[in-house]
Structure formats: C-alpha cells, structure tokens
Write a protein that binds this DNA or RNA. Sequence first.
RNA 1: GCCGGUGUGGCGGAAUGGCAGACGCAGACGACUCAAAAUCGUCCGGGAAACCAUGUGGGUUCGACUCCCACCACCGGCACCA
Length: 824
Amino acid sequence: MQQQYDFKTIEKKWQKKWAEKDVFAVTEDPNKEKYYLLEMFPYPSGKLHMGHVRNYSIGDVAARFKTMQGYNVLHPIGFDSFGLPAENAAIKHGIHPAKWTIDNIGEMESQLKELGFSYDWEREVATCLPEYYKWMQWLFIQFFNKGLAYKKKNPVNWCPSCQTVLANEQVVDGHCERCKTPVGKKELSQWYLKITDYADRLLSDLDRLPGWPSKVKTMQKNWIGKSTGAEITFQVDQMDLSMTVFTTRADTIFGTTFMVLAPEHPLAKELVSGGGNEAEVESFMDRLQHLSDIDRASTTLEKEGVFTGRYAVNPLTEKRIPIYLANYVLMDYGTGVVMGVPAHDERDFDFARKYGLDIIPVVEPPKGSNIDLDHLQEAFVAEGKLINSGEFNGMDNLPAIEKIISMMEQKSIGKKSTNFRLRDWLISRQRYWGCPIPMVYCEKCGWVPEKEENLPILLPTDVEFTGKGESPLTTSKTFAEATCPHCGGKATREMDTMDTFMDSSWYFLRYCDAKNDKAPYDKKKADYWMAVDQYIGGVEHAILHLLYARFFTKVLYDLGLCSVDEPFTNLLTQGMVLKDGTKMSKSVGNVVSPEEIINKYGADTARLFIMFAAPPEKELEWSDAGVEGSYRFLNRVYRLVYELAEATKGVKPVYRLEGKDDKQLAYRLNTVIKRVTDDISLRFNFNTAISAIMELVNEMYRYKELNDVNLGLLRDCTEKLVLMLSPFVPHVCEEMWEHLGHEDLVYHAQWPSYDESAMVQDTVEVVVQINGKVKERVEAPAGLDKEAFAETVMNEENIKTLLAGKQIVKVISVPDKLLNVVVK
RNA sequence: GCCGGUGUGGCGGAAUGGCAGACGCAGACGACUCAAAAUCGUCCGGGAAACCAUGUGGGUUCGACUCCCACCACCGGCACCA
C-alpha cells in the first residue's frame, strides 16, 4: 500500500486477483442459505451508460453485503443480445448483426469488469447464441404442445419504420415503443402466446408479492384490466340473428335505447345489407377509412356513427331499439357490441344527443340532488335507486346488478362474464436478428413443431438486410426448405423470428445452470436457486418484461419445469440518472460517460457517488462537484487507514474502554455498524448507510488527535470501517485490508456485528419543552424510568427557573429523549 | 377523466408521532504556506429579538415533515375498456 491513493494501480491489481482466483463463482451448497441477486441484463448497445452503472452498483453492493453475511450468493450477468439495433447497423454499415453484437458484448464485459462488479462470469449468457436459443425454441414447442401458442390472422400493430409487427405492450400512445413512429394496422397471420389464459393468476398473484413496489403492481393491475359483468344477448328484429354485448352495468339494462357495433364487426355487413340504409353506411365507412388509427383511438374524437337500418329487441322491455355502427366501439374489447344506455354512460349520452335517440333514466339520483332526470345535461353515472326497471324498481343499483344477471340467466338471455383488457401476446417479428420460430408448415399436417433433435434451428447466414417488407429469412435460398416432422413430406419453415422479450422471460432460470446442453436447465439446480430473492432494474419494464417473465414462470410451473410460480420475490425499481434536471441523452447533450469518470477518479469513486447521491428508487441528479466530494472522502479514508495501520501495527483489536472519549468512540462505532447493517439489509438505503460511515470517519479523526488514545479501540474501528465500506468501494478496501495485515480477501471477510452494551450511554442530552416548544437542553442520566426521569429533569436549576410561577397542568415524560411540561 | 407518486435550506438529501435540516455539495472565515493547491479547523434556513419556517388551508395530539380531511403544483402510468 502506497501512501498516496493511486486508484489506477489499486483497481487493476484487485480486478486481476479476483479474476485469477475466480472468487465470485458459486455452486449449489445445501448447507448454506442461498441468495439470488439479479439485475436486469443489458442490451449490448455499445458502451455502458450511467443508468447501467447505477443499476449494477446497487446490485453489487447488495451482493457483496449478502456474501459477507454468509449467504451463498448467486450474482450472474449476461446479455439480451437479439434485437433491432444490431440489424439496423447491418443495414446501415453492412456489418453482420452477429459481429456487431459480439463486439459490443466484449466492450461491455470489460467495462463491467473495470467497475469491479462481483459477477459469476462462468454463468454468462447471451441470448443470441445457439446454445441459448436452442432452449428458447425448445420452450416454445412446450408452449405449443400445451396449446399455449397458436397462429392467427388478425389486424396487428405494424411499425412502418421497424418494418415489423409489435405487441400491444410495445405500442405507447399509438407510437412504436422503440422508434416513436406512429403505428398502423396490418392484416397478418402471426404467432400468439395465450397470456390471457393466465390473466386471472397474473392478477391475483400480485397480492402474493409484498416485496414489489405498489406502483408496479398497480400498473400491472391496470394493464390486465379485469372487469366483471355480464354478457347479454339481443335478438335482431325480423332477422334470424342475435348479438351479444358485454356490460359491467347490467343494472341499467332497462335503459338501453340503442345498440352499437364496431364498424369492423363481422356481423356489420349482414346487418346493413337489405336494411335500406346501405348508401349512408358506405359513405360513413369511407370516411372512417381515411382516419389514422391514432386519430381513431383519440378520446377527443367526436363520436360518430350511422344507422344500420335494423332494430334489435331489448330482451327485458321488449322495445325495438335501433342498431348503429359507431367509431367509439372497439372491436377487440368485449364482444365488439355495446348496449347504449345514454342516461348512465357518458359516451352513450353524447352519441344519443347527437343522433336524437331516446334517453331513459333507470337510476335515480339520491334525494336532495339537483339533477333533473327529465332534462339530463350529462349522464348520471353515480349510485342510486332503480326506476323504470319493472320488478327491480326501488332497489339500490349496485346490489341489483347481481339480481338482474341471475334473472337473465334463468331466462337464458344473459350470463355472468369477465373481461380483460389484456390481449394475447403477439410474438412474431419480421426481422432477422431474433430466435427462429421452430415451426414448419405442411400441406397435410398443418403447423408442426420441429423435432427436438433438429434443434436449434439456426439463423441462416445467406440473407439480405434490406430493412423492407418481410422477414430477411425469406431471402435465404435454403432456409425455407423443411421436412414435415410428422409425415415426412415436403414442408416450409416459419420465416418470422420471436419477439426478444421471449428471450428475457426465462434467462434468470438459465443462469441457474447456464452450461447445460441437455435441457434449458437442471430442475434441481433451479429449485435450489429460485426464486430470485432480489431483482433490480428500471421501472420502464413494469409491464413489458416483468409481466412476461411472470407469465413464463407460471407456464413452466404448470409444465412441472419449475417449482416456483413467481420469479421475483423482491423488486427494486431504480430511478433515472439525470443531469441538469433532465434525462441524460445525446440529443440534449448532457451525457456523462462512465468511462470518463472511471479514468479521472476510478471505479470506486463512481460507485460511491452514485450510491451516496440519492436513495436507489429515486431519481439521481448528477453532480460533478458531488463526484469530487466522494473522491475526497475516499482519500480521507485512505489517509486515515494508512496512518492508523502504521500506528496500530501489531496491535490486536482488543481493548477496555477507559474514559469518556473511548466510550464515545465505541458508542459511535457500534451505532454506525447497526445503522449501516439495517440500512442495507432492511431498506436498501445506501445513501444513509454511507453518511453513517462518514460520521464514524469524522469521529475517528477527532479521536486520534487526543493525547491519550486507545490503540486497540482504534485498530478495531479501522478494521470495521474497511469492512463496512467494502461492498461500496471494493478495490480500495481490499488494498487497505491487505495493508492491515490480512491475507484473506475482504470479500471473504465476515460482516461486522455490533455490541449492544457499547451502545448504552451513561448520560444523554435531552430536550425540555414547555407546551410542546423546545426551551432548554439538559444532560440527564440514561436509562431512568418515566417518573425518575421527570423528577431529575424538573430538579435541574435552570428548569426550575423556567417553570417558576407557572401552573403545571401535565408532564409528558419520554426517558432519554424529552420532557414536555404543559403549563397554564 | 381515472389510478399512483412527490413536494423540506442556495443544491443533493436526513429525520420508529418527540431537538427539523444528519451526511455531503456550494459558500464564508481561520490555521499551515513566500504564495497557491491539497489538508485541517470553525461557521453556514429567516429574523435585532420575541419568534417564524417542511407546497396551501383546516383537524387529531401534550407534541405533526410524519396521522386524517380539503385544495394547489409537478412527475409517472392508463385512457372512447362498455
């Protein structure tokens, strides 16, 4: 150890030692309690950004801390390495996506190593490698065999810029989640996974995840969007035709005065033809065609519709009601048909107003309200008693829902029903750089999965990257040719690749047994490590990745491949890294590169600043001055440890506390250990853990200047200081630990425990309040009971003076803290 | 519109209902130095003071940044979901 803090030499030295000794590799050990700590794996875009550094620093501190506490810690890393940027680079610069990706992975690996993260590199995965995607294909086939994967022709979200379809989750505000281009619709035959079969479990099991932020759970709940209600069947007048609606408001059925279908509803044509209003419908449909999907989906779009010329019969009132087509009815929610209850639904109200349709109130506002039911100005959507509803008149509307549904069930005109906003997951992508879907089409046998021995279906290399139209796989001369695994006849391969969110939906299982070439992973190994005890990543994955991964885990659980059905026990969503109040981005020009900081101050400083500047789940404002401060602190610690290592050479950390100063320092040491331990393990409050360590350092600086120092105590403080700092700044701590004469790594050292007896003080400074306002501070003996405490404090001279001439009403005594005297 | 979250010095941020502003940054002053840097030390919400201060207004309490009610502002998610 040099006298100067030479971070460059120190960091290189210890990174080399860690790698040589392979210290972060772990194996299953039934005698040790496991702890699986995982950060979301990165897409290999080129270089690390500050968001990565933050994500992985949080994880590394936790992993090292848990290791020191004696857990068998699995802390793996890998790369989510299929995806569009690689392909775009191929189109733009003519580099093969594989080369681009592998080069980037190499770059990022070395940066992760430079930051000193404690990964078990033996378990590294890259989803673009055949040894990984072979098992992705195998899993897809398991889904298919279970009836959870199917191909369907449907209008799908189409990004004209990425030239591929998108899942609903990847369409944000009508725009492509990746490139922000407005998304259109295209009729295509595509593969889907039946995530809707799991909607109920995905929803209800959220309650079994107390370790997840409620924000994320709420977002998933909203996304799944469960509504309970009823399906009700209406007969079309004078036609042999019926239509079913979904409604959550069966209580308002008596107020249904019209029906509305989505314009693209399959029954629309049949209804219109011969209804006598064909010309008007056609011109309406024509106008609709010219609207973009984004405009159509807009909530501000005026509700427009057209009469079909047909009538339906309200099954309860038996009144004839007109049937309309309208732009505000969505084909892909419910049944695509809505019963119009203008009195009690805002949209129906607007529509009825515009087309002069009847408005019949069936729920009465509570007495005293100034709503005039005969001349409604807006829909009345609150609760009330039923009117105009036959035998149900006078009932409260909410309990009436169930009553009306069971009556309709008896008459076979309706039944209880549940609807989800969640749609099946569209996983086909018309792109090259993804996992090939291992399915072949045979004229005789239809869609058949590839034989297991033929896996992996490799990506062909003789393809052209044009970025246009269909999947580049179609340009391969040989890829399409296949033999039907069923009948042995000629067959064609599926040309699309999988959504990359498939790859990331099970990588945490692969880490449990990353090298396995007989199975995706050995179940026994997965049983040992799963579930992930702590997962850390950005909140932007709250619905996409985190929902898909939960879905996969549940399917694997049902298939008997996994013994947990929730993958992540605890979830931490870290905040963004900002500079000047906004997200770091190239276009704003406020990017601070990790490389730059590591070169100037070292990895330890970068890590320390990031952990100290804000609690992990909050946004972090980057501050160059703050980085300087962290660097200064590390220098301050280094100098202190160096000096004290010399001063206490050969001294054992054993001592007897002598005077007040000794006790004060021991008190500080032990309270800090407790604080740091609790802050890390209970709350992940790394920022306050670090401030506590700073307080200890400040105290040690004061103490060492005293005339009569206790060397044993100082030695103990020094060692424990290094131990506590080591998860945060591992390189410099290894160096200091070695200098303190230890031969083992600080990484393998035991986390310090605290001595409760040293945390008891003889006297404490307490506060004296009068009527709740602080008036005085006095020194009082610690550990008194309420009465003794009050008496002692009240007998202090200046307190007596303070209370002189006042009438005491009440005394609140909180020993060791405060005394509040209520006076008149 | 609905659902969440946040609001504390010049700044980042601390505070199981019990001293508001820990710790750090910035700043001021002092020591060391021929000088500067580095380092070490002291001060650092407002106010002359009584006091006033945790977005605003109420409430509960001996005591509220913390709990309850109403409102405001900003951020995020969902949004014609029947």
